[in-house]
Computed example of a mutant assay.
Amino acid sequence: MTAGRFGDLLAAEWIKFWTLRSTRWLLGLGTLAVVAFAVRNSLEAYQDWPGFPAMEKARFSPLTEAFSGLSATMVMIGAGSLGALAIVGEYATGLIRITLNAVPARHRVVAAKLVVVGGVMLAVGVFVSATTFGASQAILSGRGVAVSLGDPGVLRVLAANALLAPVSGVVGMGVGALLRHTAGAVVAVCAVLVIVPTFFRPTVHQWLNDLYALVPFYVWRTCLGLPQLRDDPALPTVTGSWAVFAAWPLIAAVLALLAVRRDV
C-alpha cells in the first residue's frame, strides 16, 4: 500500500474517530474539568497560604496543585475509554467488517487507528499539561511559591503528565480490540489503568515493589509525577518508569494487531 493510500486510511480513521459523539463530549468536558480543577486547587492554596503551618509550607508542591492524582485519574480514564471506544464502536456496528474487506492489509488499519488515537491523545495531553501548569503557576506566583520550567524536575513532570493521555488511549484501544464489548472494555480499562493501581503501596517485599513498578499509574504517582524524587530503593527509577510508559502502548498495539488479524 502506498503512502498516499495510507494517508486515505488516516483520513478515514480521523473521520470515524470524530464522528463518535463520545469523542467530543469526553475530550471537551474532560479537558475543561481538569483545567478547572487545577484553577480551583490553586485558588484555594493561594487563599489559605497565610494560614499554612511552617511544615506544610515546606512540603508544599506547586505542581500538585496544577495536576494532582485526581487529575491523572480523570485523564487516564477518559483517554483509555476513548481509545477502547474507537475500536469497540466499529465492532458493535459491524463497520469493522466493511473496513477490513476494503483494506485486506489489516496491519495498516490498526496502524492508522493507532496513529489517530495516539496523536489526538498526545495533543490533548500536551494541552492539558501545559494549560494546568500555566494557570496554576500564574495564580501561585502571587504568593511567591510558583515554579518555572527551569526548576529541577519540572520538565520531567510536565512530560509525564502529557504522556498519560496517549499511553492510556493506546492501551484502551488494545483492551477494546481484545474484549469487543463497550461496557466491558471501559470497565476493564478503568480497572487496569487506575482502580487497581490506586491501592498499590510500597512494601517490605521488593518483588511486590518490582511488580508495582510495571504499572503506568503507579510509576507516575511515585516517580515521574514528583518534582523531587524520594530516596527509597523500593520506589521505581526514572529510567525504568519511562520504559514502562513506552512498553504498555507498544504491547497494547501488538495485541490490537493480533486481535484484528484473527478476525474472519
Rank of each mutant, 00 (worst) to 15 (best):
M55F: 14
L257V: 14
W18L: 04
G28T: 14
P50S: 07
T64A: 09
L257F: 15
A146R: 06
P202R: 08
T19Q: 10
V254D: 04
L164S: 00
A135W: 00
A213W: 01
A188L: 02
P152S: 09
L43G: 04
L179D: 00
V192S: 12
S241N: 11
L122A: 15
W248L: 05
N101Y: 09
Q47K: 03
W18G: 00
S81G: 10
G150L: 08
I139C: 06
A185H: 07
A84I: 08
V110N: 05
L9N: 13
S22G: 09
G28M: 06
S22T: 15
A253R: 00
I251Q: 03
V204R: 10
H107I: 10
N101C: 07
T31F: 08
H205L: 13
F127S: 04
L258E: 07
S61L: 10
G118P: 12
R106P: 06
V186P: 06
G28V: 11
L70E: 10
G119R: 03
N101E: 10
R21Q: 10
G7W: 05
V171D: 09
L32K: 03
P202C: 11
W25H: 06
Q206Y: 11
A86D: 13
F17C: 03
T237C: 08
V103E: 14
D231R: 01
A3I: 10
V34F: 11
W25N: 03
L114G: 05
